[in-house]
Structure formats: structure tokens, C-alpha cells
């Protein structure tokens, strides 16, 4: 495989030589990777390999930890996201995040989705906001299930519905990138399949990066897979190649269940 085949044309985000430290401990060592809108990128690797840490550095979630320090360069559409001029709140709207446990606000379904557009001033009026909420819920594949219960609390939905509500909430502010950190690990197989189907639908509209412990899931939803181990990016390639013919022994041992 030539390097060119793996190059992503017009990458949405570029990470170059990224190191992440927690205090004195280095969690990520010199990672460079591009993510694009046309391809879903999956990060896989054993617990503690740094994949979540790296994911969180893509929208500066690590800023919330005082001891965390990021060096190297991460750009969004060519803009350095760690530049002093970067508005972090704005950044996190452009680079949305979905977490392992669904975390809807203790508000109505409608308000959960409307929250972002409201604080970012994206809606011109009530009718406009209604439209934004509906569109986001449709895109998240949740509209048909909740259109008659928009006033109910988001926390009253099932786990899978809550997770799709969180995705709708991220979508509502028109992000460019959606980061998903183990979005299905708390869901049953049917709810998981719905999220995976949704990821498939959203591909091309947003750059999607998903961290997952479930290798079958990485194989199912992504077109590019990055294998992390001990804070380094061991192998990056087409998902089909990674799962049928990985180049590195460490990758092979991990995906065939021989790790450790």
C-alpha cells in the first residue's frame, strides 16, 4: 500500500506531532493523523493506550484537567485550535462530542436539542428553532420516536434514544466534526445497530471519529482505523486492510485477541 492511497484529500482536521502529558506522565507520543469528512475514522487499542486522550485533545476537552498539557499542532480547517485566539466554546460547537454514557440535560427533549442553537444564537426565532430541532432529530434518526413527546424529559427516554438525543444535540449546532467516545458501550445490540446505522448516514456530512473497544464495531462503521498502543499510533490504514492484513505484529496480536 502506498502512502498516497491513505492520504486524505482536504482533511478537516490535521494533527501533527502531538504529545499529551498528564503532569510528568506522557500519555500520547508524537501522533500525527488526518481526519476527513468522507471517511469515518476509528481509534482502537487496549485500555490506557491513549486513544480517548488523543480524541479529547481534538476539541480541547483535556483543557478541563489542570495537569494536562498538549504540544504539537492540531488544526481545524487550517486553524490552530490551540492558538490563543481560538474561542474554545466556539471550537466545541464546531467539534462536537458524544460520550460513553448518554448524558442528556435534565430538560425536555426539545430543550436538549435547542440548547446549543440558543446559546450560539443560531435561530432567528421560535419557528426557526423548531425547524433546527426537528432537522437535528431527523438526522439523528430519533424524530419519529419523539415527535409527540418533545416536552418530556430527555432523561425519560431509553438508553439508545438518549444517546441519539445527544447526537442530535451535537448536530444541532452544525458541527464540522463529531467525536464519539465509546458511544455504544452502554447500549444493547439493537440500540447499538441504530447508532452504527446513524454513523453511516452521517458520514459525508460531518467528519466522524469514533473511539471503540469493540473491534467488530470499528470494522463495521469506519473506513480508516488507527491502532494505538502505549500512547503511540502503531498503525493507521484502511479498515479492511487493518482487519484482514495488518502490517504490524502489535496490531495483529491485538485484533486477533493475542494481546498481552
Amino acid at each position: 500500500m502506498t502512502h498516497d492511497e491513505l492520504t486524505i484529500a482536504n482533511p478537516k482536521m490535521k494533527a501533527e506531532g502531538v504529545d499529551v502529558f498528564y503532569g510528568a506522565k506522557q500519555a500520547i507520543n508524537n501522533v500525527s493523523i488526518d481526519v476527513g469528512t468522507d471517511l469515518v475514522t476509528a481509534f482502537i487499542g487496549p485500555s490506557g493506550c491513549g486513544k480517548s486522550t488523543f480524541l479529547r485533545s481534538l476539541n480541547r476537552m483535556n483543557d478541563t484537567l489542570a495537569s494536562a498539557r498538549v504540544t504539537g499542532k492540531i488544526t481545524l480547517e487550517g486553524e490552530d485550535i490551540y492558538a490563543p485566539s481560538m474561542d474554545v466554546v466556539q471550537l466545541r460547537a464546531r467539534v462536537g462530542m458524544v460520550f460513553q454514557k448518554p448524558n442528556p440535560f435534565p430538560k425536555s427533549v426539545y430543550d436538549n436539542v435547542a440548547y446549543g442553537p440558543r446559546i450560539h444564537g443560531l435561530a432567528a426565532g421560535k419557528a426557526d428553532l423548531d425547524l433546527i430541532v426537528e432537522r437535528a432529530l431527523v438526522r439523528a434518526g430519533l424524530w419519529d420516536e419523539v415527535k409527540d413527546r418533545l416536552g418530556e424529559s430527555g432523561t425519560a427516554l431509553s438508553g439508545g434514544q438518549q444517546q441519539r438525543l445527544c447526537i442530535a444535540r451535537a448536530i444541532a449546532v452544525n458541527p464540522e466534526v463529531i467525536l464519539m467516545d465509546e458511544p455504544c458501550s452502554a447500549l444493547d445490540p439493537i440500540a447499538t445497530a441504530k447508532i452504527e446505522d446513524l454513523i453511516h448516514e452521517l458520514r459525508g456530512k460531518y467528519a466522524i471519529v469514533i473511539v471503540t473497544h469493540n473491534m467488530q464495531q470499528a470494522a463495521r462503521v469506519s473506513q480508516r482505523t488507527a491502532f494505538f498502543h502505549l500512547g503511540t499510533l502503531v498503525e493507521y490504514g484502511k479498515t479492511a486492510d487493518i482487519f484482514t492484513n495488518p502490517k504490524q505484529d502489535r496490531t495483529k496480536d491485538y485484533i486477533t485477541g493475542r494481546y498481552g
Binding site: 482487519f243 485484533i255 486477533t256 485477541g257
Partner: peptide, 9 residues
């Protein structure tokens, strides 16, 4: 077992 990589091959 859902074998992968060399196991699958």
C-alpha cells in the same frame, strides 16, 4: 470467535 487478520485468512 469472529477471527481477524491471519486467523481469518
Amino acid at each position: 470467535r469472529a477471527p481477524m487478520a491471519d486467523d481469518l485468512r
